[in-house]
Design a protein around this nucleic acid. Structure first.
Lengths: 156, 156
DNA sequence: CTTGACCTTGAAGTGGCTGCAGGGTTTTTA
DNA sequence: TAAAAACCCTGCAGCCACTTCAAGGTCAAG
């Protein structure tokens, strides 16, 4: 165990929960984190319970859950005597989404690789089999939209 | 082959390229589609070349490319004497992105399934192994952000 | 000549942040 | 003790790829 965490400023909380300070303020606006105490100088003050709650949120996000799903889980968590059947249902639903998305992407990768092999020896884009392939009126559609943005990462 | 496509209104183009009319206007604003001719009543008028170009765009989108990637491909396509090496590079890069994302999601699914098995027989959320598992300070991160939104679909 | 299907523009909303401007506070260093 | 650096504050704009809405204009069928 680490030392008891009290009177953390937002940057301290950020480091402990691996979450940018801007995102902490955003979660507060969104109602996922309670409004914390403030210092005389109007700085936010956090304690161990905030580290725990924010870690919970970040773990859920790293499991690709939406903020709405996380909001529901937090409510269930805050009502400790409820039946945890709902937790199971929510998680099973989420596992289903992930499995679907994997299937789609695998299909996608196959299509891309087939397309990639169409590049002949022509040398110019005019005769490029790839560009030709992309013009075909195929219009197969993906079933699951990608959402939002995953924490802490950018396209390199 | 279908009959020659001329003097299509935006709804006709929409049906032929499986793309909502609003999205067509959006692509025009974004410079992916050229500004079309207009009728006396100010309706957009399209021809076969627009059906082809929009189908190209939609196929690329269904392969999960960004509008920026598609813009580059369209430029290459519009310069028919260039070397198609750049097309290959772009496509290989994209295949790489997709492969990475699949690997992440598979890892993710494993984590979710392990978590799911933690639900003991306690019956109440207070003792729920899942909620407990989500509180652990794990903070493994996904490497690739999900972007935007896939054409024509919603979460059910 | 009215109904209804279609089209127009412009602006705002979505999710989950991220970044910035323009300040205030606190800590460190000289 | 004073200056510099590091941190914090609010509020707002921007990102992507659309989607939705409001408020109107156009056109063909009955």
């Amino acid at each position: 165990m680490t030392a008891a965490a009290v009177n953390l400023k937002i940057g301290d909380l950020a480091r402990r929960a691996y979450c940018p300070a801007e995102t902490i303020r955003y979660y507060e606006r969104e109602g996922l984190l309670p409004e914390p105490a403030r210092t005389n100088g109007n700085y936010r003050l956090y304690g161990a319970e905030h580290v725990e709650r924010l870690s919970f949120i970040r773990n859920c996000r790293s499991l690709d859950m939406t903020l709405d799903e996380i909001r529901k889980l937090l409510l269930l968590r805050d009502a400790p005597d409820d039946n945890c059947e709902e937790v199971n249902v929510l998680l099973d639903g989420h596992i289903g989404h992930v499995a679907e998305r994997i299937a789609e992407l695998r299909h996608l990768r196959t299509d891309l690789q087939l397309l990639r092999e169409r590049c002949g020896k022509a040398g110019t884009t005019k005769d490029c089999g790839i560009l030709g392939g992309l013009s075909a009126n195929v219009a197969r559609k993906l079933k699951t939209p990608r959402r939002g943005h995953v924490p802490g990462t950018h396209r390199r």
